[in-house]
């Protein structure tokens, strides 16, 4: 399998980990869409060096801790991970200690980090806060502040190109379009964009997107939209026979297909904490 990893900022992850088809188009690294590099001479000169420093829009999951009990953490996390396991696997986690009573010490923290690791996630830093700086230094982990463009410009290491201070709004990525049937056992993940499948999704197949999931065919497997927390995302299908549908982690399993939905064009959306299903008319 070709191993060319093109990392443009921390938000790009090798989708081969998630998508079982190594030749799939979602692996094309050229459609970056994050902070566009300006075509000026500084950028051109930088391109010939060994590395590039850029500011990436990082989507980082935060774990807000209310307890440092590793057992409790393991229990609760395992439950949450079970809902969307492939989404959580090897995900970067930032620990927010703001709601803890008192300052935890390094050994307590190690227990917490181990518990998180056992659920398949990786702690990459601490959220900015009163207790985090000392602790972060002891543990050798960074303190991660919320990303604000003006702060980024202030801390920009040389060469600071004018484009970084202006921080152009990242262009939304066009949808990932998949034209072949998604076969049983295959998994498809559209990161940072919508997913459009113009064929059917087989039983025990999984299709996921950070945005919406559109299936212009039959949905017989699992469809998960808004996988990284977008509660406004929806799932659409022309023929509803789904095994499981989820939006932003809220899921529903279909042991029996309700008569009014079975085989019909259906959309699924999140209304508050509840997943609602509706016929698509017309």
């Amino acid at each position: 399998m070709p191993k060319s990893r093109h990392r443009e900022g921390a938000s790009r992850v090798d989708l081969r980990d998630l998508c079982c088809n190594p030749n799939h188009s979602c692996l094309t690294p050229s459609r970056s869409g994050t902070l566009a590099a300006p075509m000026n001479t500084t950028a051109a000169a930088v391109r010939t060096t060994a590395l590039d420093i850029r500011y990436a829009q990082v989507g980082l999951l935060q774990l807000k801790l209310r307890s440092t009990d590793p057992g409790a953490i393991l229990d609760e996390l395992t439950g949450k991970v079970a809902t969307v396991p492939q989404f959580f696997r090897q995900t970067a986690i930032c620990l927010d200690l703001a709601e803890l009573e008192g300052e935890p010490d390094a050994s307590e923290m190690r227990g917490v980090i181990e518990a998180v690791r056992r659920c398949g996630m990786l702690v990459v830093g601490f959220a900015e806060g009163p207790t985090s700086t000392e602790l972060a230094r002891t543990m050798g982990l960074p303190v991660i502040a919320g990303f604000r463009p003006q702060n980024a410009a202030a801390r920009a290491p040389a060469p600071a190109t004018p484009a970084v201070a202006a921080a152009p709004v990242p262009q939304p990525l066009p949808a990932l379009i998949h034209t072949q049937p998604v076969r049983s056992g295959q998994r498809l993940y559209a990161r940072d964009r919508d997913l459009i499948v113009t064929a059917s999704v087989g039983a025990a197949a999984e299709v996921m997107a950070d945005g919406c999931v559109h299936i212009y065919g039959a949905l017989r497997g699992r469809a998960m939209a808004g996988v990284r927390g977008d509660t406004g995302a929806r799932v659409f299908t022309r023929e509803f026979h789904a095994e499981l549908v989820a939006v932003a982690g809220v899921f529903k399993v279909f042991e029996q297909l309700p008569a009014e939905l079975a085989g019909q064009p259906v959309q699924a959306l999140l209304a508050g904490e509840e997943l609602r299903f509706a016929r698509l008319d017309g």
């Binding site: 088809n21 072949q180 049983s184 056992g185 039983a203």
Partner: peptide, 21 residues
């Protein structure tokens, strides 16, 4: 039928013709 669906997925991805395009 379920198993054949799986096999069709493998034929489309884990064969020399699929890998070489």
């Amino acid at each position: 039928v379920r198993d054949s669906d799986r096999i069709l997925g493998l034929l489309a991805s884990k064969t020399e013709r699929a890998e070489k395009g």
